[in-house]
Design a protein around this nucleic acid. Structure first.
Lengths: 220, 220
DNA sequence: CATTCGCTGACAGCAAACTGCCATTGCCCC
DNA sequence: GGGGCAATGGCAGTTTGCTGTCAGCGAATG
């Protein structure tokens, strides 16, 4: 029962020095999970990695899957970066739960786990042990499957706080008349709002709209 | 940069011998992710572990979270075991994606990762490295959040294959008349089916039913 | 064979939802 | 002030959805 290959390095400098070559070796699959895209203290690190990877991702059948939380959508700059990622062929998904620590898996053979920030630096744990990587990869897959694709998430801000109120009344099963009165608007206007909502959700019927709203997690 | 504490053992016997004491030390939190409950080749292992843990879970404020795939619901015997788990205070959730390898995290201090089966035995990777456990714990959390609670999953088998067909037509936004014709049944019968579906989904309106169906993932 | 039961379908009536049209209101800009 | 402009509400008419009732059909049961 040998100690598997697990090394711990402190700071991005050491990571680049001791594991930088692993990024260039990416061959088939590159997985990454993090809260948002603002994870490298030195901007150069990002650009260097991106520059190294870009030729690879386009030539071969490389799969790049990036998983972020909705925090990545809050900032306009990061949205821009996300779209760039999509542009170069990466898959991006957004999950609701938190992903506090950065996790990177390359070709199922190398895994890099980032620890919490300590004095402006992070500790990185790098391993090539299949026994460690397999289960983590499985967990990543499960989270990935449950997460919404970025494209879906970018579509739905069409529904303003006004539409949300309509959604609530509809979700509560109210009659149009009751709902309109509870919102203090006329029946006609309420139905206009509903019609707008249906259009926004690209639906032909109320059931369909409800289904889509439920799928997109617009209920709470 | 020290080698963190990572050991690899082969077979449940060795695991029990070298890491068995860690199970009794569980204090605040016990996480477990696996495809189904049939993960121990020796039935005794399960009962031993359960016996060791049961007193703990009830006395202190111990959190036990078990994450399985829907495979665990297919077998009647496993459903029974799941209900027992609920009975002793464990939280159980079901996720749609696959969770091929068993993953156990205890108190955020010990992590046990199971590898694939090889000749009736598995290789277990046991570690106490925070750098490894933290990120995996985060991934577990994310998967957990996205998964449906077992209680929800046990409720909804009310909808038979017949109801699914109705769901599809409704989800497609068809008019009742079109849907009825496409299914080769009369308008009256179709509406009867819809009414049954609404009752099954405990809904007052079609929108509400759609919303619930969407939330429960009944769309595909 | 007769009866009962469950499911289906047709008809009818009603409630709810959808839409077009127009008058009104409030607001911004010229 | 006057002229758009957008949002709202009222009205009317149509469509769609909902349900009760009853007759027909077939299978199971006696």
């Amino acid at each position: 029962m040998p100690n598997d290959q697990v090394i711990t390095v402190r700071g991005e400098g050491q990571l680049a020095a001791r594991a930088g070559h692993l990024f260039t070796g990416v061959n088939k699959e590159f997985l990454c999970a993090a809260t948002d895209m603002d994870t490298w203290s030195q901007p150069s690190t990002r650009t260097v990695i991106a520059a190294r990877m870009q030729p690879t991702i386009q030539q071969r059948d490389l799969t790049v899957r990036k998983l972020y939380t909705s925090a990545a959508l809050a900032d306009a700059g990061q949205r821009e970066q996300l779209l760039q990622l999509l542009g170069i062929g990466a898959q991006v998904r957004i999950c609701e739960a938190g992903l506090p620590h950065e996790t990177i898996i390359i070709d199922r053979r190398v895994m890099i786990l980032a620890g919490p920030w300590v004095q402006g630096d992070r500790e990185f744990t790098v391993t090539t042990s299949p026994g460690l990587i397999g289960p983590v990869h499985a967990l990543f897959d499960a989270t990935w499957e449950a997460a919404a694709s970025l494209a879906d998430r970018l579509e739905l801000p069409l529904i303003g706080p006004d539409g949300r109120a309509i959604l609530r009344t509809l979700g509560a099963g109210m009659t149009d008349e009751v709902a309109a009165r509870s919102m203090g608007i006329s029946l006609r206007t309420y139905r206009r709002r509903v019609a707008e909502l249906l259009r926004a959700l690209d639906s032909d019927s109320r059931f369909q709209a409800g289904l889509r709203a439920g799928e997109l997690g617009l209920s709470p």
